[in-house]
Amino acid sequence: MARAQHPVILTAQDLIEGDAVWWTGTGWSRNLAHALVYNDPAAADAAEARLAAEESRVVGVYRVEVDPAPVPRPILRREAIRADGRPSFAYRPQGAARRAA
């Protein structure tokens, strides 16, 4: 497969919550806007490999292609849905209570 043409960000899932987190360059954030955008594939490769080796509080480090401006937005629908942190439809049946976040 051809190399990514788009800038990438690095993501994983939080070990305890299981939700998506984004690499900021210094730590993991739940805020996509804080994700560090890599324009250099080699730098992304190196960071991905290092973070994958250090996995303890997160699971499954991988890269996501993004449209970088004004805030990073994933190109693929799967990643866009994941970045939203919820299904693409009104997923909770009417009246469903929510566990305290």
Binding site: Q13, E17, G18, D19, A20, V59, G60, R78, I81, R82, G85, R86, P87
Partner: peptide, 11 residues
Amino acid sequence: MNGLYLQLHAY
């Protein structure tokens, strides 16, 4: 083996 997956948004 205990039915716990890690899915798109959560466990």
